[in-house]
Simulated scan of single mutants.
Amino acid sequence: PTPPAQRSHTSAAPTPPSGPPSPAGPQIQLIPAPADGALDAAGEAVDLLLDTGRAPGDILVLTTGEQHPWAAHELSFGEDAYWAQHDARDDVFYAAAALVERASARPVVVVAVNGDGDEDKAARALPLALARAGTLLIVCGDPERINAALGAGV
């Protein structure tokens, strides 16, 4: 697969993903993928992050469409147990983008812009995901949808 395109959302130099948060905000990486491939692209991004030494508890994965299978499975045990895993910060946490306000900030946030093309979901989720990302926001999906949702070229 093609490596992700790295771009900063400001004119300032991007902060290295392993460095401290920058006052200019997190680095943004766009991984182009069709809506039906965004979840797979997000999974590959998480695998790469883990393979390069990122701690699992540093990563939050959000989906704008269908839930990630891990989230759906864990929610079957009840919301209290599901959110307790979030609070423990021991592993990668997967959630629906609609729940991003309940999720705490993590150094890396990965967003899969998957689903039926509901632009409003992506438009609401991406700025909130950006606010939750400490050093790196990775967005997987259609670049046109993502740029429209963020309100600027990424």
Score class of each variant (00 low, 15 high):
residue 133 A to P: 00
residue 85 Q to S: 11
residue 69 P to L: 07
residue 12 A to S: 10
residue 6 Q to I: 02
residue 143 P to I: 08
residue 127 P to Y: 07
residue 92 V to M: 11
residue 115 G to H: 05
residue 21 P to W: 03
residue 112 A to C: 08
residue 56 P to K: 03
residue 129 A to Q: 01
residue 46 V to E: 05
residue 96 A to T: 01
residue 5 A to T: 11
residue 111 V to L: 01
residue 71 A to V: 02
residue 99 L to Q: 15
residue 78 G to W: 07
residue 123 A to F: 09
residue 50 L to W: 02
residue 53 G to E: 03
residue 40 D to Q: 11
residue 34 P to D: 15
residue 15 T to F: 00
residue 114 N to M: 05
residue 132 R to W: 02
residue 99 L to V: 08
residue 46 V to I: 15
residue 37 G to I: 00
residue 142 D to C: 03
residue 116 D to N: 10
residue 90 D to E: 15
residue 104 S to A: 14
residue 29 Q to P: 02
residue 35 A to H: 13
residue 101 E to I: 05
residue 113 V to S: 08
residue 50 L to K: 01
residue 10 T to Q: 00
residue 91 D to P: 10
residue 67 Q to A: 14
residue 70 W to I: 14
residue 1 P to C: 06
residue 52 T to C: 04
residue 97 A to S: 14
residue 147 N to T: 12
residue 47 D to M: 06
residue 12 A to F: 07
residue 118 D to Y: 07
residue 142 D to Q: 06
residue 127 P to H: 03
residue 29 Q to N: 11
residue 94 Y to L: 08
residue 96 A to V: 05
residue 143 P to Y: 08
residue 96 A to I: 02
residue 55 A to F: 07
residue 40 D to G: 05
residue 57 G to W: 10
residue 139 V to D: 06
residue 43 G to P: 03
residue 95 A to N: 11
residue 74 E to N: 02
residue 13 A to E: 13
residue 7 R to Q: 12
residue 98 A to D: 14
residue 59 I to A: 15
residue 121 K to M: 10
residue 66 E to C: 03
residue 75 L to W: 02
residue 109 V to E: 11
residue 85 Q to Y: 01
residue 74 E to T: 00
residue 10 T to I: 00
residue 49 L to M: 14
residue 89 R to A: 15
residue 145 R to H: 14
residue 94 Y to A: 05
residue 55 A to D: 14
residue 143 P to R: 07
residue 43 G to C: 05
residue 151 G to D: 03
residue 80 D to L: 00
residue 70 W to M: 13
residue 140 C to R: 02
residue 87 D to E: 12
residue 139 V to C: 07
residue 101 E to C: 04
residue 41 A to L: 00
residue 83 W to P: 01
residue 137 L to N: 02
residue 109 V to H: 06
residue 30 L to V: 15
residue 118 D to W: 06
residue 108 V to S: 02
residue 97 A to H: 05
residue 24 A to E: 11
residue 35 A to T: 13
residue 94 Y to H: 13
residue 122 A to R: 14
residue 124 R to N: 15
residue 9 H to S: 01
residue 153 G to L: 14
residue 19 G to D: 09
residue 124 R to S: 15
residue 128 L to F: 04
residue 23 P to I: 04
residue 124 R to T: 13
residue 8 S to K: 00
residue 57 G to D: 13
residue 84 A to C: 00
residue 146 I to T: 09
residue 23 P to Y: 04
residue 75 L to P: 01
residue 114 N to S: 15
residue 30 L to E: 08
residue 91 D to T: 14
residue 90 D to Q: 13
residue 78 G to H: 06
residue 11 S to M: 12
residue 40 D to N: 05
residue 6 Q to P: 00
residue 151 G to P: 03
residue 85 Q to N: 10
residue 72 A to D: 06
residue 131 A to D: 09
residue 123 A to Q: 14
residue 145 R to S: 15
residue 31 I to P: 04
residue 44 E to P: 00
residue 18 S to L: 08
residue 107 P to R: 12
residue 17 P to T: 09
residue 24 A to N: 11
residue 40 D to A: 13
residue 43 G to Q: 08
residue 119 E to I: 15
residue 144 E to T: 09
residue 147 N to F: 04
residue 134 G to R: 00
residue 83 W to D: 01
